[in-house]
């Protein structure tokens, strides 16, 4: 839990800043049978990012990275909207979109696990080509659909709660179950920690890697449906643009190392919420929205610095000289002899 401390503090600080500028920020109301409130909005608008970040966490834990999720978001939305606009039926459209996304994810996984291409490059291929593919599906147009059932995914409510939040909770629960209740998490951490040693321990690393990339793409696919459903249209060019970067940020802020190995799903959710809250905060404190990116840059830098061991050493070192000597930390230093 100690490694979640900083992300939680940052999130809490951001929320408090909001409370100062917007006194009613923490209030949640029930209006017309729907939950309303700024906190609910953060969750609702942050839902696609949380989903993409969850998939990304597992990919990063295997020592990989998936740059293609943004393109997959666009493909998913594009294909679903195209199908719906051609009256193919909602269920078929969603199934087809998610099926294609999973397939594309498995393709990424195949390139990484079986062909042995570096993840950042393997997924760069689909990141570049996928945008083109999404535009190919929509023929460069923005497809608008009008299907109330489809609207539910991203913009609807179920039992007073925004449907998107329910989807996130369900996906999170499934992910936690697969990784922590079942043994997937340990095997992922093992593969990410040392792939060759894992193979010699009898772990089917290839299968796990393919599965993880497919899962990340599936998550991105669901996020894509949410985004296009929310605006009732598909934009192959702009849907999910740069969401992969936000997702990677969320994972890193959440305390999972980009080098692979140990991962924290809770940290990732908090990381994604930090990013979403930041956007909300900028609107609520009246800073021009153009500067969102500036603040994002500052927060990213701050969080990364705080998490950097070298930075903490340097800061503490300076303090250590001015103040009386600190008691010996419980940190273990490996003494190699």
């Amino acid at each position: 839990m100690r490694r979640l401390l900083w992300p939680i503090l940052v999130l809490a600080a951001l929320l408090l800043v909001n409370l100062i500028f917007t006194p009613g920020f923490f209030s949640i109301q029930l209006r017309e049978g729907h939950l309303y409130g700024s906190l609910i909005d953060i969750l609702r608008f942050g839902a696609p990012l949380i989903l993409v970040s969850l998939g990304m966490t597992l990919v990063i834990a295997t020592g990989g990275i998936d740059l293609s999720v943004g393109s997959i978001v666009a493909i998913s939305g594009a294909l679903a909207c195209l199908q719906i606009s051609q009256d193919q039926g909602l269920f078929a459209a969603v199934a087809l979109a998610l099926g294609l996304c999973t397939l594309l994810g498995a393709w990424n996984g195949f390139l990484v696990a079986a062909v042995g291409i570096q993840p950042i490059i393997a997924t760069l291929i689909l990141m570049v080509a996928g945008r083109g593919l999404a535009q190919l599906i929509t023929d460069g147009q923005i497809i608008t659909v009008n299907d109330p059932a489809f609207k539910l995914i991203g913009g609807g409510y179920l039992l007073t709660v925004p449907f998107g939040i329910l989807i996130v909770i369900a996906v999170l629960a499934i992910t936690v179950f697969l990784t922590r209740r079942l043994a997937l998490g340990m095997l992922i951490e093992s593969v990410g920690g040392n792939a060759e040693a894992s193979r010699l321990a009898g772990i089917r690393a290839r299968g796990i890697i393919v599965m993880v990339y497919a899962f990340a793409a599936l998550c991105a696919g669901v996020a894509g449906l949410m985004i296009s459903s929310n605006v009732s249209s598909a934009d192959g060019n702009n849907a999910g643009l740069w969401i992969e970067l936000d997702a990677i940020l969320a994972v890193v802020i959440g305390g999972t190392s980009l080098a692979g190995g140990r991962f924290s799903l809770g940290g990732t959710v908090i990381g994604a919420l930090i990013i979403q809250t930041l956007t909300t905060t900028i609107y609520s404190i009246g800073v021009p929205p153009e500067t969102t990116l500036l603040f994002k840059a500052l927060v990213v830098t701050a969080v990364c610095l705080i998490q950097s061991q070298a930075f903490r050493d340097k800061v503490f070192h300076r303090r250590g000289r001015a103040a009386p000597p600190r008691p010996v930390t419980e940190e273990k230093v490996r003494v190699s002899t």
Binding site: A183, A197, S198
Partner: peptide, 29 residues
């Protein structure tokens, strides 16, 4: 280091790793 241990994982996890691998990820020890 290279072909044996997963340095990130704990002693316990390293010890049960091969056993877990034989059971697959769906059947945790």
């Amino acid at each position: 280091k290279r072909d044996g241990l997963i340095e990130d994982l704990t002693v316990r996890e390293n010890i049960v790793l091969a056993l877990q691998a034989t059971r697959g990820w769906t059947r945790p020890v």
